[in-house]
Design a protein around this nucleic acid. Sequence first.
DNA 1: GTTCGGTGAGAATGATCATTCTCACCGACC
DNA 2: GGTCGGTGAGAATGATCATTCTCACCGAAC
Lengths: 186, 186
Amino acid sequence: MSPAPAHPLEEARIRVLAAADDRFYECGVAAVTVAEIRDTAGVSLRRLYGLFPTKADLVAAWLRDRHTTWLAWFANAVGEHIRAGSHPTDAVFDAVGDWLASTDFRGCAFLNTLAETASLTEEHRAIIAAHKGALADTLTDFAADPDAVAVLLDGAIVRSAALRSPEPIEAALRAARQLAPLTGAP
Amino acid sequence: MSPAPAHPLEEARIRVLAAADDRFYECGVAAVTVAEIRDTAGVSLRRLYGLFPTKADLVAAWLRDRHTTWLAWFANAVGEHIRAGSHPTDAVFDAVGDWLASTDFRGCAFLNTLAETASLTEEHRAIIAAHKGALADTLTDFAADPDAVAVLLDGAIVRSAALRSPEPIEAALRAARQLAPLTGAP
DNA sequence: GTTCGGTGAGAATGATCATTCTCACCGACC
DNA sequence: GGTCGGTGAGAATGATCATTCTCACCGAAC
């Protein structure tokens, strides 16, 4: 059904990145060993190191991959809520609210990784900053003050992780509804 | 000026907690070794382990200590801004804005520690949740919707750390000013 | 003066990793 | 059939820790 992978190498790369996303997000970068990624991906250590010469390289590739994937998921989820009748600003919070309520929610992967200062490279920091910038950019289509909505979203995400409850998204939505509306929106 | 320490033991405990706060906040819990805490505090490993049987115990004591210290600093800083003429809600953002702009700002210690899932105990998680709950409680005096303001504050803190700019606090303040005002406040 | 509980300094222990290396194997080409 | 580049499996290497242990020392009590 899916297009055949160009190379066995490409296929291994995809499996490794999927394993990295699974393990790194659930347990944090520092807590996951390269051996665990190898086992989850079902590739040999040799191939893993051939694809990503160091663990830091793998982390960077994972962050880049998740940056793309998460924003795509987000745009799609917001679109679905809008199509289901939500006001654009509300839809943004509905989408994130769905995520917060999912059982495998573990906070924002980028903020979590940023907090693991131990082995973070400058490249990692740049990817994380770019992701948070891109989130605000995405919101330009849905809110009059995208930076303010981004603050509400990230605040709800981290407080939800800390308090272990999806409740903060409701406080965030209450606040968002009092913000100046998007001019010219339907 | 300060009351004389009851015991040399008590004095050592204070120095260890100060060292822990200095190192853990700057570098993250996982990146700081027990030996580094010993050197910074100037106590022997033996005494350190006598005071805190495991590193996890030290982390828990540090979190509890910082919980008290940070909230006291926050209440005081907000009070100063109010005395200087700020509106109560504004004062909350002024206080956090000062912190974000300081050179040693490294995000929220509690959220950072939460992200280091590796060796986090249930006790740690409980202290972190309690801290975030207490922050919202503190805001009851300064805002009509303390949970919404807490979301704005935490969002500004993490986005400021990720983007490496104190700018998000301004977006948060813009949003806060559009929130329903505190009824009965001066 | 001697003895003893407690102490500092720092070495020893035992884990846990990231990364590299070894070796036996396989399929492609001659 | 034989050779060879590349591969999987997993052992070896070298660090880095948290935690414990050793030993020599000091001041107090007798």
